[in-house]
Nucleic acid binder design. Structure first.
Lengths: 346, 346
DNA sequence: ATGAAAGCGCTAACAA
DNA sequence: TTGTTAGCGCTTTCAT
């Protein structure tokens, strides 16, 4: 069923039908109703390709994923974000295009996307310090919103981010309030903007409390179970061992837990663990893991916000002012962050 | 830069340029070279929208994700699969369209996809027993490949699946060979085809060894850490407790482990744990989790195979014979599946 | 308030 | 081997 056919049936011109369907004002209400009714009755759906060609808009948003951004896509954080964004796109009649590219081809991927014209805008995932993408996209004139921030990009750009600095500042302060003085940081790769910000928050809190910043209690790397395990093994074996851990990932926290248990220490009694949770929504899958405490933010919600911001931006045109959005993480306190036993005793 | 402009520059007709670029045989080699050279030099990229409209092919593959298929997309298995499929699409110049839809709208989503014509085919994820999608897609004439199987769909259809039945049959047999007679199954939701097949494999092995099928040792549900924990607590407390666990998910296995450790039992000494791993690629993230044993299959590879099969199918046309592909899981044996201590002693 | 006509950028018969 | 001519299904001036 094409527009032409539908028009024929109604005894109208394709123009009028098009106008009626797209909500143009100059169509009489009676005609509009007739057209709408006929459209649903004949199960008419405009051909997207034709629409795209005629309007020049792709009606699609791109997500470019370098193949080995540590399997970005396999990251539940990413997946949850995508789910949120997808909801928004679907509601707006936009397609979501996921583009998996070899690492070296990322720049070319954006250029191609641009010149082939198969997206109206893109979301930038996993920004690093010194990330080249904002500059590239600005140059290409391809609308974008960054999920996270590129702290050292000078020009204004649209972003949606969790307040990582503040989350880790508060987490550290919280552990300090419990009496801990040896608070370890098990962080993600600090080339990533979010991880750098987390460290900054951690350090700010230490400084504010007059606690020493001990490199032996700070580690950064791939956020895996093994990372947490290895880090905790080392930090629990120090002459002046860690009594609390602040980790960047639930996986790392699980590794920390394993190290703690192996030593016969009690979680939440001898040692406290606090983790910033983005993955929890996946890991717990509806059931609370009682062993962890988390600062919790909704990645899916971030996806929705990011997507909506991009659509708004596309609709508003390139001259419109640039929006940003900072989401606060919620500190959720659980068993594993009780004051350490020996701290109470002393 | 459009085809027309490029043709003008070259003093050729758009047709010839198009033919040269698309590898049609009737173009002279010299012309083809000239055209190709000019195209790269002027950074020409054909407009996808126009191509789509002219050819009627969408040059895109759809993945429809019901919003709450337990957050299918948040499932690392899904994400890894997508990454594999994405590679293939990219190489073939196809877009990957992810469509997030409300659960009730899934059927409508396929119909709309069809009539809007924005995909050439779809991949069916997470098939259940009695899944209505193959019939719907056959009716719509929309090419598809199922990742998994719909065992009770009568008509032939294209699928790519891991041999779940055999994997669990072998896993059970393996545990039995170690001397275990009380082997528990902690399965996924058995409305899912893969989980039903796993149970069938488990039961077949029990029957083959003359072991009793004890409902108290069989559970099925959401594959979470909590599920494994709860199941193991119950099954270890039986008058005749489980000595080995076969689980459908690494998360469940982690729960089982927690229950075992809480009881002061030693993993791989007092109790064996074997888990079918699809998630391991994510969980371990390059590092072996020493505590688990896994039958391992590459989900990403399955994604590649599935995608390629679909593209082939689309190219071959609706009359072409239907392909299927069964992947064997590899049984990887680790510490946690050593024969239970008391079994050796007795 | 409605319609006629041109065109978006490309492909694909059909001619030459 | 190359070019001419129609479209693909829709939007969008410009008339009426």
């Amino acid at each position: 069923m094409t527009l032409k056919e539908l028009a024929q049936i109604l005894g109208l011109s394709p123009t009028t039908v098009s106008r009626a369907l797209n909500g143009y004002p100059e169509v009489s209400e009676s005609t509009r109703r007739r057209v709408a009714e006929a459209a649903t009755r004949h199960n008419y759906h405009p051909n997207v390709q034709a629409k795209r060609l005629a309007t020049g808009r792709a009606m699609a948003i791109g997500h470019v994923i370098p193949i080995s951004t540590q399997h970005e896509i396999v990251n539940p954080v990413f997946a949850d974000f995508i789910a949120g964004a997808g909801e928004v796109y679907a509601r707006a009649g936009y397609d979501m295009i996921i583009s998996i590219v070899a690492d070296d081809d990322e720049e070319q991927a954006y250029r191609t996307l641009r010149s082939k014209g198969n997206v109206d805008g893109v979301i930038v995932h996993g920004p690093k310090r010194g990330d080249p993408r904002p500059a590239l996209l600005d140059e290409l004139g391809l609308p974008y919103v960054v999920h996270g921030r590129v702290s050292d990009y000078a020009a204004p750009y649209a972003w949606v981010d969790v307040n990582n600095t503040r989350a880790f500042e508060r987490g550290t302060a919280f552990l300090s309030d419990l009496g801990h003085r040896r608070i370890a940081l098990v962080n993600g790769l600090e080339s990533m903007d979010f991880a750098a910000r987390r460290r900054e928050g951690y350090e700010a809190a230490l400084a504010a409390r007059g606690l020493a910043r001990d490199p032996a209690l700070m580690t950064a790397g791939e956020m895996t179970e093994a990372q947490g395990y290895d880090a905790a093994c080392a930090m629990l074996s120090l002459p002046d061992p860690a009594t609390a851990f602040l980790t960047s990932s639930l996986l790392s926290a699980m590794g920390v837990r394993r190290a703690i248990e192996e030593r016969g220490l009690a979680l939440g009694r001898d040692v406290s663990v606090l983790t910033h949770d983005d993955e929890l929504s996946y890991m717990k899958n509806g059931t609370e893991l009682p062993i962890f405490t988390a600062t919790r933010s909704s990645v899916r919600e971030a996806g929705r916000i990011c997507a909506q911001m991009l659509l708004d931006r596309i609709a508003a045109g390139p001259e419109a002012p640039i929006a940003t959005r900072l989401l606060e993480a919620v500190l959720v306190v659980g068993q594993s962050t009780a004051p350490a036993r020996h701290l109470i005793a002393s």
